[in-house]
Measured scan of single mutants.
Amino acid sequence: MEVRTIKVFTTVDNINLHTQVVDMSMTYGQQFGPTYLDGADVTKIKPHNSHEGKTFYVLPNDDTLRVEAFEYYHTTDPSFLGRYMSALNHTKKWKYPQVNGLTSIKWADNNCYLATALLTLQQIELKFNPPALQDAYYRARAGEAANFCALILAYCNKTVGELGDVRETMSYLFQHANLDSCKRVLNVVCKTCGQQQTTLKGVEAVMYMGTLSYEQFKKGVQIPCTCGKQATKYLVQQESPFVMMSAPPAQYELKHGTFTCASEYTGNYQCGHYKHITSKETLYCIDGALLTKSSEYKGPITDVFYKENSYTTTIK
């Protein structure tokens, strides 16, 4: 009895394709271990004539594949690729409408935090270190965002349907971005203890939790000093293409032309909904596939993004 075979390709990165001759009487799992086709788990399936010449994702289970996976995804987590594939199996079914010149995501599976993050990423200057993220990001900007969303979920250790947080998501993504040249110098002034300067680099240099107003941050924000008295913390120097200011959701007025974009969060910790506000020729609110415009805006804002380049204080 002759062994019926077909020729397929296996890959971990969709760049390096490895030619395989597979036995049609055995499952993919018996031949390769966990195997995925377009995100779908085909591990328990036997090869079919229609699979001839198709590319299958496999887990990096030998040295060659491990090197290829690390170079593309910059992670050695053995569960990463499987999590990416199972997320992709959902995100490829989502709709990605162009809204006001940006790629958004039609609401499904509690994905409003991903839509808000995706919209924000198209408006701030950011370059990702893992080629996987950078490639998928370019495709997302062009309207094909399924891979990018699935990668975000995998890097953030999230599953489809789980509630997510924009600030946490951005923080994970910033860790995989090139923020080497970003720098922030802060000064804390206390009447009792004097003053202390701190220099922050990388992710810490672009994120701040405690106030939404970048102007206020430049002037000074009140913080408790270690001595128990009130101290003032203010920005001395900022070198970065953008800054992200966050605070627990509270009524906040966004003035046209003073910011790049913002995240609105309605609801409580267990259950809520994100919308995205962007400042173009007027203010726009993007909620999944829905767009509304207004000249002014007041609502429960939790993150505001500002364009920056270089700032030095005039406070002496």
Rank of each mutant, 00 (worst) to 15 (best):
L118S: 03
W107D: 04
A140E: 10
C112N: 02
A140D: 04
A136L: 04
H18Y: 11
P248M: 12
L200F: 10
V8Q: 06
T199E: 13
K127D: 15
Y28W: 05
T266E: 12
T19W: 08
P78Q: 12
Q216C: 09
A136K: 02
Y311I: 10
Q31D: 09
I315Y: 15
V206W: 00
V42S: 07
C261P: 02
T19D: 12
G299H: 05
T312P: 10
T292V: 08
Y137G: 03
T199G: 04
H48A: 14
E125K: 07
L114Y: 00
E281Q: 06
K183Y: 07
E264A: 10
E162K: 01
G267E: 15
L291G: 12
R167A: 06
A117N: 01
Q216R: 09
A154V: 04
Y252K: 04
M245H: 01
L290K: 14
A140M: 12
K191L: 11
I15Y: 08
V189K: 10
A262W: 02
K183N: 05
Y72K: 08
F80P: 03
L65D: 09
A177Y: 04
R167P: 06
I301P: 00
L114Q: 03
L186S: 08
L179G: 06
T313H: 14
A262Y: 02
S171Q: 14
F217W: 06
P60A: 11
T75M: 13
C190Q: 08
I105D: 00
S246L: 01
A250I: 07
A69H: 15
Q230K: 12
P300G: 00
D62Y: 05
Q196W: 13
N268A: 00
D165E: 05
H273R: 02
T55D: 04
R141P: 04
E239L: 09
S240M: 00
L163Y: 15
V236T: 03
E168A: 15
T198L: 14
L290I: 15
C112W: 01
L17N: 08
Q251V: 13
I6E: 05
Q31K: 12
L114K: 05
K280H: 10
C285M: 11
Y208E: 10
L212E: 02
L153W: 05
L254S: 00
V304N: 00
N61I: 10
C193Q: 04
T27Y: 06
A250K: 12
A108K: 06
Y36T: 04
A231V: 02
C285T: 11
A132S: 06
I124K: 04
Y84D: 04
L200M: 09
A117I: 10
V166A: 05
F56D: 05
K233G: 10
P130F: 03
H48D: 15
L153Y: 15
H90D: 07
I105F: 04
Y73M: 03
G29Y: 08
R66P: 05
Y84Q: 01
D109M: 07
T103Q: 00
Q175L: 09
V236S: 03
H48V: 11
V58R: 08
T302C: 06
G143I: 01
K298D: 10
W107H: 03
G228A: 02
S213I: 00
K106M: 15
H90R: 11
N268R: 02
Y274R: 05
Q195W: 10
G82N: 11
M207C: 10
M209H: 15
L65P: 04
E125G: 11
M170S: 00
P130W: 05
K255Q: 11
A262S: 01
C190P: 00
A262G: 03
T226D: 13
S171M: 12
T282C: 10
A69G: 05
K255F: 08
L153K: 00
D13L: 00
T226E: 12
A146R: 05
F242G: 00
T226Q: 14
Y306K: 00
G272T: 01
C182V: 02
A247F: 04
A142F: 09
M209S: 15
Q122A: 02
Y297W: 08
V21D: 12
A205I: 00
T226S: 13
Y73I: 01
F128Q: 02
Y137V: 05
T266I: 09
T278K: 03
Y208H: 10
T211L: 10
L290W: 11
L186C: 11
Y113F: 08
S294R: 13
K201T: 14
K307G: 06
G267Q: 15
G53K: 12
E239H: 10
D180S: 12
S79Y: 08
K183I: 08
T35H: 15
V166I: 01
N100K: 13
F174Y: 01
V304D: 06
D135G: 08
E125H: 05
Y73L: 03
S279H: 07
L186F: 14
H276K: 00
C261A: 04
T198P: 02
N187D: 08
E281V: 01
L290Y: 14
T192K: 08
G101Q: 11
M244W: 02
C271Q: 10
T232M: 12
P248F: 11
A150N: 08
A69Q: 11
T103I: 09
Y28N: 09
P300T: 12
G164I: 00
K255H: 10
T27D: 13
G101W: 08
L235M: 01
M209N: 15
D38N: 10
V67G: 15
Q237L: 12
T5P: 11
V236L: 08
Y214R: 03
R167T: 05
N110I: 00
K158D: 03
E144Q: 12
M26A: 08
E296V: 14
Y269M: 15
G210D: 03
R83P: 03
G161F: 04
Q238W: 01
D62F: 00
F80W: 03
L59N: 13
Q197F: 09
N147W: 07
N268M: 02
K46R: 13
K54I: 13
L173E: 00
H18G: 05
E296W: 11
T258I: 09
